[in-house]
Design a protein around this nucleic acid. Structure first.
Length: 596
RNA sequence: GGGGCUGUAGUUCAACUGGUUAGAGCACCGGAUUGUCAAUCCGGAAGUUAGGGAUUCGAGUUCCCUCGGCCCCGCCA
């Protein structure tokens, strides 16, 4: 027996009782006579007292040897701490355990970094010794939050009639989307499995298979470059339902998120969440994942700009571009140097320049002479600019205007402290079905090619005839939280003919469609029910809930920016025999050593 | 592929404009210490300044290359 109670669980109600506890030595304070030692396990920490007058002499002697992270078991008596020695800083601070038996279960070498201090350790080091990093209360908290989130999700979806079903990890590479991770087949020389970017096709097949409600907390893989919120393997809460429309899915997911936030954060989210058509999001915020916690909306300035003689604005409009404005709340005091910096930033984001007008007692701007005063006043009115503010304008192609201003909107909000605490969810709906891909000179699906167009779009597509692909809308929706996309989904196509047509529209020849997705097209012929679903990025969700700066902080064993694992050393060379069995010969261009 | 930041004892940091033997806190080792809670006090050991090259009388500091880490753009349906 190692323990009768967790270190973090003792309190005044246990006073006088004998307890057994096991854990790690967090800190010890050796006074020669009395030795205090904080013992930590997953439940928390408690103060042990070793006294020369208590228990056997050998115990006290042994206690001198204790060092950080030794693993020990103790038996002792809980006592209320003497008055004045309580520690209000920890939950168990009203009591302490007088130790009468001590066993050192395992020693610990001097640590590569200290766990008991509040200093930032280089992340490379943390990852190399992740098993030590995980002992830090901060990391424990994140991992627990992640677990609780999964638990809440499972409870909720179970009650809603969902079945948790596993889908293959060794599956088929499909084009479109991210780069696949490939796994060579030994049985079929020259062929490869792909790790799933998501279980998309399988969950649709489960619907055809009559499962009606499916979910899975599932690992997905994308071989793309990493970011603070992106890992090559990440986890989705993946769901799919039959006989549903957009509203059904949105309602269900709102219920799910509400429950998670209530259980994990004790936060009562108001539902329904605000819904914003994609076109509105772009118009008002400049991107499709707006942070709705604060205002600062982008405003169209075309009408007013055309009343000016400012060539930059007029030229942009003449070329079919846009002029939009943004409120620089409280930024009238910006120096020339600071406005130059803003301009440089706008330029780095693709704009040719940035126009600004400061609002003080009078307006102040190098471009003021091009604008009649009443026009400037109206512009200020549109942006609700008050004295002390600055107005910012970008004129360019719509895409550039939105890119630049949406980015500045976030920067300004951060810099000017305009972001209130609290969480703001929103749905972005009515996405376009396709977007033009410059590189490949073809249209591609914005969501994925299995996304259903809207009803009138379906009619147009099935009728044949002339189609403006850029105008078609889809039944896709994204879930956005505080400016991060944390989920997305759609109603799917459940008609084989429509699916074939869509694949054709994105430039996929019939034979290729057959080769890539033949199994799906077949399945849709055999009584596929209408269905749709959604996937939530679990890592990102937990990251936001824990306030973590990086997705790595909510993953037990994450990868570095170069997709490597400093702990295990993956990826690594494999021996020649393994490669031979897979019929693989390396062709690495530089002089680096190939496989051993 | 591109832009930016970064690498100094185990660890967190310091070291002026290029100038003596690269310092400090914590950790570690030895000693003292009976109410501490980042205990305290005394002493000690600890460095390929990421690696390589160049400039210089002299390089942690300047320059070049390589390696690693982080942030961003591209990419991520």
């Amino acid at each position: 027996m190692y323990r009768s109670i967790g270190c973090g669980e003792i309190g005044s109600t246990h006073a006088g009782k004998e307890v057994m506890m096991s854990g790690w030595v967090f800190r010890s304070r050796d006074h020669g006579g009395l030795i205090f030692c904080d013992l930590r396990d997953r439940t928390g920490a408690a103060q042990l007292v070793f006294s020369p007058d208590y228990g056997e002499k050998t115990i006290h002697k042994m206690a001198h040897q204790l060092r950080a992270e030794y693993v020990i078991t103790v038996k002792g008596d809980v006592r209320i701490r003497p008055e004045g020695t309580e520690n209000p800083g920890i939950p168990t601070g009203s009591v302490e355990v007088y130790v009468k038996e001590l066993e050192i279960l395992n020693k610990c070498e001097p640590l590569p970094f200290q766990l008991d201090q509040d200093v930032d350790i280089a992340e490379a080091n943390r990852l190399k010794y992740r098993y030590l990093d995980l002992r830090r209360p901060e990391m424990l908290k994140n991992i627990v939050t992640r677990h609780k989130t999964c638990k809440a999700v499972r409870d909720y979806l179970d009650r809603e009639g969902f079945l948790e079903i596993e889908t293959p990890v060794l599956t088929k590479s499909t084009p479109e989307g991210a780069r696949d991770y490939l796994v060579p087949s030994r049985m079929t020389p020259g062929c490869f499995y792909a790790l799933p970017q998501s279980p998309q096709l399988f969950k649709q097949l489960l619907m055809v298979g009559g499962m009606e409600r499916y979910y899975q907390i599932v690992r997905c893989f994308r071989d793309e470059d990493l970011r603070a919120d992106r890992q090559p393997e990440f986890t989705q809460i993946d769901m799919e339902m039959s006989f549903v429309g957009v509203d059904d899915i949105i309602n269900l997911v709102e219920g799910l998120v509400k429950k998670v936030f209530k259980e994990i954060r004790s936060e009562e989210l108001p539902t329904p969440f605000e819904r914003l058509p994609y076109s509105d999001a772009m118009e008002r915020f400049g991107n499709d994942k707006p942070d709705m916690r604060f205002q600062l909306e982008l405003k169209d300035m075309a009408g007013l700009a055309s009343k000016s003689s400012f060539k930059v604005f007029l030229d942009a409009l003449a070329a079919g571009g846009r002029v939009k404005g943004l409120l620089g709340k409280g930024m009238a005091g910006y120096s020339r140097r600071e406005t130059d910096l803003l301009t440089a930033e706008a330029q780095s984001l693709g704009a040719k320049g940035l126009a600004w007008i400061k609002v003080k007692d009078a307006f102040e701007s190098p471009i003021l002479k091009f604008f009649p005063e009443d026009v400037v006043r109206q512009m200020a009115g549109r942006l609700m600019a008050a004295p002390g503010d600055m107005m910012l304008f970008v004129a360019d192609k719509e895409r550039v205007v939105n890119d630049v201003l949406s980015r500045m909107r976030l920067d300004i909000a951060k810099k000017q402290n305009l972001i209130p605490t609290g969480d703001k969810f929103a749905w972005i709906t009515d996405f376009p079905l396709f977007e033009w891909n410059e590189e490949d000179s073809r249209f591609q699906a914005i969501h994925h090619p299995f996304t259903s167009p809207t009803e009138d779009g379906i009619k147009k597509i099935m009728d044949g005839g002339d189609l403006d692909l850029s105008k078609l809308k889809s039944k896709a929706y994204d879930l956005v939280l505080n400016g991060s996309e944390i989920g997305g989904g759609s109603i799917r196509i459940h008609d084989s003919e429509l699916q074939k047509k869509i694949l054709k529209l994105i430039g996929m020849a019939e034979e290729e469609a057959e080769e890539r997705f033949g199994f799906l097209l077949d399945a849709l012929k055999y009584g596929a029910p209408p269905h749709g679903g959604l996937a939530i990025g679990l890592d990102r969700l937990v990251m936001l809930m824990t306030g973590s700066q990086s997705i790595r902080d909510v993953i037990a064993f994450p990868k570095t920016q170069r997709a490597a694992c400093p702990l295990s050393g993956a990826p690594s060379h494999v021996d020649k025999k393994q490669l031979r069995e897979l019929y693989i010969r390396l062709n690495v261009p530089d002089e680096k050593p190939a496989a051993e």
